[in-house]
C-alpha cells in the first residue's frame, strides 16, 4: 500500500503515468472507431451505435473491476454530489457542442492524431476558448445555477437503497440486454 501512495504522490511518476495512460487511451479510442467524425455524428443520428457499444462495454467491465478494487482498498470513490443546475444544464450545453463539433474532449484530441485539422483548429481551439469563458463566469455561477437543485444522494445504490452488488447486477443486466437488443436489431 505504501508503494501505491508513493506512486500517487510522486510528481514525475504521475507525469509519465498520465502520458502513458493517455497514449493507451488514444490508441484504444482510435481502434474503436470513435475518433472519426462520421461515427460520432451517426451515433447521435441513431444510425451507428459504435459509440454506445464502446462506452457500455467499458462500463460493463469497469463497474465490476472498480467495485472489487474499492473493496480491497486499491481505489477510492471520486463521485461528486451533483445538481440539476450543473449536471443537467451543463450536460445539455455539452451535447449541443458534441453534435456541432462531432467530437468530445477526448476524441477531439484523438481525431487530431489521425490528421483531422477541423478537430485541431476548430475543436481544440474552441475547447480552450470555452473553458476560458467558463473560468471567467465561474465565480458568479458557482453559488448560483451550479448549486441549484442538488441530487439527494451521491451514488445509485444509495438512490435505490440497495446493496452495491445488487445494484451492479441490475445495471449489468440492463446494459447487456440493451447491447443484445442492438445486435438483434442489426444496429
Amino acid at each position: 500500500m505504501t508503494s501505491l501512495a508513493w506512486i500517487r504522490n510522486n510528481r514525475r511518476t504521475q507525469i509519465v503515468l498520465g502520458f502513458t495512460i493517455g497514449i493507451c487511451f488514444g490508441f484504444l479510442l482510435q481502434k474503436s472507431g470513435v475518433t472519426d467524425y462520421g461515427v460520432i455524428e451517426n451515433q447521435l443520428l441513431l444510425v451507428d451505435f459504435t459509440v454506445l457499444k464502446m462506452m457500455l462495454s467499458a462500463v460493463i467491465i469497469g463497474m465490476i473491476v472498480f467495485q472489487i478494487l474499492k473493496q480491497w482498498g486499491f481505489a477510492n470513490l471520486h463521485a461528486a454530489h451533483g445538481t440539476l443546475g450543473s449536471n443537467v444544464i451543463g450536460g445539455l450545453i455539452f451535447g449541443a457542442g458534441f453534435a456541432l463539433l462531432g467530437y468530445c474532449p477526448g476524441t477531439v484530441a484523438g481525431a487530431v492524431g489521425t490528421g483531422a485539422l477541423d478537430a485541431l483548429f476548430g475543436g481544440m481551439v474552441g475547447m480552450l476558448i470555452g473553458v476560458g469563458i467558463f473560468a471567467g463566469f465561474y465565480p458568479s455561477l458557482k453559488d448560483g445555477i451550479l448549486s441549484q437543485g442538488p441530487f439527494p444522494v451521491v451514488t445509485v445504490p444509495e438512490f435505490l437503497r440497495l446493496n452495491p452488488w445488487i445494484t451492479i447486477f441490475i445495471l449489468e443486466v440492463c446494459m447487456v440486454g440493451f447491447l443484445l437488443l442492438l445486435e438483434y436489431a442489426g444496429l
Binding site: 450543473s86 468530445c104 478537430a119 476548430g122
Partner: peptide
C-alpha cells in the same frame, strides 16, 4: 464553414464540460 462550426461546437463543449464537471470519459 466547417472550421467555424467546429469552433462554435468546441466552445460549447468546453463550457458544457466544465459546467457539468466532466466529459464523456
Amino acid at each position: 464553414l466547417r472550421v467555424g462550426a467546429a469552433l462554435i461546437g468546441g466552445i460549447l463543449l468546453g463550457i458544457g464540460a466544465r459546467w457539468a464537471g466532466g466529459c464523456t470519459s
